[in-house]
Structures are given as structure tokens and as C-alpha cells.
Design a protein around this nucleic acid. Structure first.
Lengths: 338, 338
DNA sequence: CCTGGCACTCTTCGCATCCGAGTGCCAGCG
DNA sequence: CGCTGGCACTCGGATGCGAAGAGTGCCAGG
């Protein structure tokens, strides 16, 4: 078990290292923090912390830097979430308030988060399955070609082409449209499959094929793979990563381009509350030298999607967590209003 | 005026430098290319080329590297466009053929282009104003809230919320929808403003406000700033940029995040044929050490948007141009089919 | 006009050296 | 028992020097 002072030493090491980006030694520590003990004592504490795996030396005769395990302890026990200042809150609100539609909200959020944290921001669009249906529309583009448009309460609009097996009359179309909406409008998307399963039964034989096709397209839209979208920004911040650019930055950029990887990353994060994944805690290898701070956001009490940032393990955790949390809250509010 | 051989020397310098990324000297040149003259002669030629500003020395006693002006001459006079091989063509076609909707087409195109050229790919969505209206739909989400959906022949779908000044009945809505479509369906977007300007006159006083609002929203959608979208990819390729990472890569990433900058960049490029902008020819300062190769693409003979790549000035121009041209052609085909 | 030769310029690299930061350990003190 | 000052030690990074090598410019001769 680590004594109180050793925890303080660890905290001091993390803070200094995050600030200076350089290994921190015992002398510098005692000078910059009021630990009330001498460097020699701190050295003993550091040796103990190193034995436990919380810190490490890049080389003999260099200072110590925190390990992933050290950051983990820091985040869990030694540091809270730094709240945003009042001006910062106002700035966030002002910035987000101008958004005109969902795309705009997400785009602004990404920008904001990237600026606040000076890291790479990732914002997921509201998940379809966790949203509520506002409206389903069917348009006939051609006699045997329909367009299916889904609109959610969170402002998402998805469209799909549907090629019908046979021409589909305007009357049947109106009928289907009305029946569809009466069944699913106002309901959760996750309930949609159940609500529409017997809808084809109500139609004549010749139209049944088309109705079935429309319904299966509708359901396809809700399949995991397709329904998730996200936006990233602030990649220019990667250049402030460290001195050993290419090798670190490369896999990160690759990961960011693979939406699948990112979605999995966000998906693995806890469903409620803020999640911090540090270095090797990330399953994806390319992100082993980064930390991911993410949190769910939503219009009501419930999360409809996640957002977060990706940055070097050496990041200002309290500040980053504060920014991420604050942004998530305001985005939730904006969505609730629209 | 430069003699034929001097041009050959320049061509050889460009080719070697692009291959090795290192300044090339007179001796290496005579060894790798059959110039039929001695290094000393080549040195004289190089001195002349340097006087003319086509090549430069990083330091005294280093080899030469091409300047922007040198690349320009190379592209204009010394090198053609390298056509894709048959297998490459097939690969392109296969890769693009699987796309299910416009987003998918664009996403696949970006990926493909990034992979083929190993550079950053930029693909603009088909411009609204240059497309044809396929359908305009109006949905009543609430009594005084409409959604306007625009569908183009290129598969683009744009939606906008419209808050009406007064509730708008279903009958009026159907009327407006029908009138709108009969006027604009099949017409070019650029003609839409003219075609709808007197549409409000046909409605009762109480509905006229709403109709006007709808029309102005429709027109807003076509405004330059909003109508253009683009997608980028392959940013991981930036890591192969050169040895002097951070300083070069940073502004490029920043430029790529500013869609406005990119759109302007593509917009400045010639409207027909392939455009190559080399280094300082790019108006945006952050891209002064990059070259942009872009070309229009379209479903018919006419370009509806542009695509291209951004890479180091030291790039394989013939190969890159070949890839860009080939991809643009196939994308045009795909769009024409859908 | 081309060529071989030659002197000159710089950059790069290896090597030896020095300096300092930081450590671990120990003996002594409260 | 824990803290402290002292001390020897290690090692990385900076500095300086010299040799090597690549490449150039220029010149005289074919």
C-alpha cells in the first residue's frame, strides 16, 4: 500500500511531466511542490513507485515519467474533473447555439472540442436505434423506384433508395405511408422491427412484394454497421504530440480514418459516465500511445451517442475531462431544444 | 532557350529526386540515365538550369533538387500522363461498382484515390447548381413545420427544416408540392430561381407567407457556401511527406480541416481538363510545399464537381495524374448509371 | 562543344571529451 | 523507524575536431 505522501509525489510527477514534457527528477519536484521533505526522501518514494510500476525512467540517470498504470491511478484517485470556468461555459453555449441543423451541431461540436482540448475530437451522430422516430416518408421517384426517408427526434435524416419488384401505385403508396407512420411515429427505433413485422399482410398480393422490400430496407438502415456515423476534427493537433512524430502519428491517423475502429473504441467505453482509456488499455494497437476520453450525450437523461477526444497519454486529464463533460452537456441541451 | 539535352537533364533530375528523395548529383545522373555525355558536361547543363531557376542546391556541395518552376516545366513539357494498367483499371471499377448510394460512392472514391496515389485524396460532392432536379419533396413534420427535401440526378439528397409563419394545410401542401415539381423536376438547379420566382402568386393570402418562406429556404440551399460538400481521406499518407515533419504537415492538416480553403482550392482549378498546382502556385500559404492535382468529373460530358489529391511537390506527377484522371472517369460512369 | 582533371567547399560522421542531472546507497540524527 | 545530507556513480547530451565523401566550378585540351 502506498502512503499518502507517495501518492502526492505521483500526482506531482504527473502534473510536472504533463506540463514540461520532460522526465522529472527529485530535486525539481521538491522545488516546485511543497512536499515538506527533502529530495532524498522523494527519491526513496520514487524508487518505491517505480517498483510498483507507476513510473519509469527512460534512461538511467534521467528523471521519471508516469507509466500507463501511473496515469490510471492519477485519474482514478488523485485528480478530479476540472470544471469549466464561467466564461468558458458561455463560450461553449454561444458557439453551439448558432447551429442550424444536426450536421451543423456535430460539426460545431467537433471544432469546439478540438479547440478546447487542443486534441483530436471525435463526435458520434445520435444513434438511430436509441432515437425516436419522428416521421417516415416514402417518395416515388419513378414508378418502381421509391426513396425512403427516416427522420428522428434528434434531427438525423437518413435516406435509402428502394427498387420495387413491381410498379407501385400512388394509392398504395399513400396507404403504406399512412400505415407506417401511424405505427412507428413517436416510437423508439429499437421497437420498429417489432412494430412493422406484420405490415405486409394488410396489402394485396401484387403490392406485397414491394412492401416487403421497403420494410427490409427500413430494417437494414437500422443495422449496426450502417446506422452509426461520426465526425472527427482537430487532427492538426496531432503535430503537438511529441518529438517522435512519424512513428506515433501514423497509426493514429490510420485509426482515425477507420470509422469502424473508432466506433468500436467508443462502443467499448462505458455506457454511462465518463470513460478514460489510457495507452495500452486501448484494444487497438495503433492507439497504444494515446488516451481516449469519452462520454455519452443525449437530449434527455439517456445517452444517444458518444463524443470524446484522442490525445497523447501525457495529457491534462482533469482539464480534458472537464471540457468533454461540459461539451457533452451542452450538446445534449441543444438536441433537446430542436 | 534550353537545348534538348538540358531538358533531358531536368527530366532525369526530377525523376531521380522523386524516387530517392535526395539531391541528385551530376555523376549519379550519368550513371542512371543514358545521356551520352560526361558528368562534367552535365554539370555545365545543371549550372545553366540553375541560372534559369529550374533547379537549386540545398547547400553548396550538395546535389540539385527541382524548384517549383522546374516541376512546372516537367509537368508541362517533359512528362505525359501515365495511363493506368489494365489490372489497375479493373481494380478501380470493381472497387467503385459496389457502392450503394452517393455517400458510398464518394467515400469509396476517396479511399481508392488515397490508396492509388498514396497521397491525401479530396473528393467534392456533385455541385447542386450544376445538377438536375429529380424531385422536390415537402413533408409536414408539424402543422407549422415542414421539411424540404431535394433530390438530384446525381443522387445527392439535401434536407432543410422550414418553420412556417402560419399553419399550412395538407391540401395547400399537396398543391405546392405538385406545382413545385411540375416546374422544376428535370430542370437544372441553376434555373430553379428563375422558375419559381412567381410561384407564391398562385396561393391564397394566408398561405403566401409560408410559400415564400419555403421558396427562400430552397434558394438558400443553392447558395454557394452551403451547397458544396467534400470528403477527404488518406491523411495518414502525410507521414510519408519528408523528414521535416511537423512544420510541413501542420499547416496541411489545418488546411484540410478548413473546407472553405479546400473548396476555394478546387474552385480555382480550371473547369475542364486536369489542373496541377505546384508549391507556391497554391494561393493558400499552408500548401506552399504541396502540389494539388485536380480534375472535374461528371456523369455526362460536363463536370459536376472536382476531385484530386494533395501531396508533396516531390511527387510522381505522371502516375498521380494518371490515377486521378482514371478515377474521375470511372466515378463519372458510376454516377451516370445510378 | 565536350571532356578529364583538379582544387575547393561543405556536410556528415565518428570519436573523444566534458559536463551535469539524476540516481542509489549509506551513515547519522531525531 | 523514517528522514536527511553526503557521496560516488552512471549515462545521456553537448561540444569540438578531424577525416571522409560528395559534389561543384573552372580550366585547359581535344
Amino acid at each position: 500500500m502506498l502512503s499518502e505522501r507517495r501518492l502526492q509525489v505521483l500526482r506531482a510527477i504527473v502534473q510536472d511531466y504533463v506540463g514540461t514534457e520532460e522526465p522529472v527528477g527529485s530535486k525539481a519536484l521538491t522545488e516546485r511542490h511543497n512536499l515538506g521533505v527533502s529530495p532524498a526522501t522523494v527519491r526513496n518514494d520514487m524508487a518505491a513507485l517505480e517498483d510498483e510500476g507507476f513510473i519509469a525512467q527512460p534512461h538511467t540517470s534521467a528523471g521519471r515519467i508516469p507509466t500507463d498504470k501511473g496515469y490510471r491511478l492519477f485519474v482514478d484517485k488523485l485528480a478530479g474533473v476540472k470544471p469549466m470556468t464561467a466564461p468558458e461555459r458561455r463560450a461553449i453555449q454561444n458557439f453551439l447555439d448558432g447551429a442550424v441543423d444536426l450536421d451543423d451541431v456535430v460539426a460545431r461540436t467537433v471544432r469546439l472540442l478540438a479547440q478546447l482540448t487542443r486534441q483530436v475530437a471525435v463526435v458520434q451522430y445520435p444513434s438511430l436505434t436509441r432515437s425516436t422516430v419522428r416521421h417516415v416518408e416514402l417518395l416515388a421517384l419513378a414508378p418502381a423506384r421509391l426513396m425512403l426517408v427516416l427522420i428522428t427526434d434528434t434531427g438525423r435524416v437518413e435516406q435509402r433508395m428502394v427498387d420495387c419488384p413491381a410498379p407501385f401505385g400512388e394509392a398504395s403508396l399513400a396507404d403504406l405511408r399512412a400505415r407506417l407512420n401511424s405505427r412507428v411515429a413517436g416510437r423508439r427505433f429499437s421497437d420498429v422491427p417489432r412494430l412493422v413485422e406484420d405490415l405486409a399482410d394488410a396489402f394485396e398480393n401484387e403490392d406485397r412484394g414491394t412492401v416487403t422490400t421497403v420494410l427490409s430496407t427500413l430494417l437494414e438502415t437500422l443495422v449496426e454497421e450502417n446506422e452509426e456515423r461520426l465526425m472527427i476534427g482537430g487532427t492538426a493537433n496531432l503535430t503537438r504530440f511529441g518529438h517522435d512524430f512519424p512513428l506515433v502519428i501514423r497509426p493514429v491517423l490510420e485509426a482515425l480514418e477507420e470509422q469502424v475502429v473508432l466506433l468500436k473504441l467508443l462502443g467499448e467505453a462505458g455506457d454511462s459516465g465518463m470513460t478514460v482509456r489510457i495507452g495500452h488499455e486501448n484494444a487497438y494497437e495503433g492507439l497504444n500511445s494515446t488516451s481516449v476520453v469519452s462520454v455519452g450525450y443525449g437530449s434527455g437523461g439517456e445517452a444517444v451517442a458518444k463524443l470524446g477526444v484522442v490525445g497523447p497519454t501525457r495529457m491534462d486529464y482533469p482539464g480534458t475531462m472537464g471540457a468533454v463533460r461540459a461539451v457533452a452537456r451542452y450538446v445534449g441541451q441543444i438536441l433537446a431544444e430542436s
